[in-house]
Amino acid sequence: MGPLRLPALAAFLLLTLLAPLALNPFWLRILTEILLWMGLAVSWNIIGGYTGYLNFGHGAFFGVGAYVTAIAMVHAGLPFGAGLLLGGCASAALAAFIGLPTLRLRGAYFAIATWAFAEMIRQVALLLEVTGGAFGMRVPGLLDPNFFYYVMWAAVAGTCAITYGLMERSRMGYKLRAIREQEEAAETLGVATTRLKLAAFALSATFPGVLGGIYGYWTTYIHPDSVLAGSVTDQMVVMVLLGGLGTAVGPILGAVLLQAVSRFLWLQTEQSVLYIIFIGLVICVVVQLLPDGLVGLWARLRRPQREAGGAA
């Protein structure tokens, strides 16, 4: 970390922590949404970015976390904190269960299997009585925007810190990156790939589980078509691809940009269709021009300067 980065990071954290004191509820809500998507994108990056397994069912863990937390509060009478813990654990356990067969698949096969799993979870939530079926579920909430801002902030900061610590500079991170680059070679070098992938999958599922629980408590109503919708995963994937797959900063950058555009378009037109068109355009641009996302573009732009500096 460079000499200026730490003070800059500290200033950024302090500013965001103090934001509720300066912002009105409307802007605080937008900031809370941005934090939510940052956390989701960072969590997707663990399995999709660092390990290279493109999970198209990640949104299911968000929904499972939301439902388990809500059920724990509504049907078991547990407090929010305990429900949240259960939501995170349930998502991790489900990921480990699903990961055992699906992580043996690779590429498009894994993507399709996880997408099908997410759709299955959505259908089950539509049928079950305990989830409220097609009527959805009301969740007892706490109508204090500041509280949710801080909870979300803490959850996302924790997600980012754990991810950075585990993925960027740890033994586990090196092994996962090796799996992404060349799984067979990693395995013949003594890396227990199946166990590591499973651990990464369960870890990456824990965070959306927790964020889902907070989301349900925040919005006070959840439905399979909101918390288990395929678009939840789609947005996470596009945010990470736009920012930079397998990088620490990329998902955060992608989430801020896309969510800011989403809210701006909604404020201007009060329709979500423009945002969907925008997402399509982003996918085209990333595939054609930015295979390494904005972080990769930044690195490419800086490289000639460094080389020129080195040659001088």
């Binding site: 033994r171 090196y174 092994k175 990156r177 680059e181 067979e184 070679a185 990693a186 070098l189």
Partner: peptide, 18 residues
């Protein structure tokens, strides 16, 4: 079958990383 995006040094660290 190298870890192409990892550095030369990091390639060597992986097998003995524990």
């Amino acid at each position: 079958a190298l870890f192409r995006k990892m550095t030369v040094e990091e390639n060597l660290w992986v097998p003995a990383i524990d």
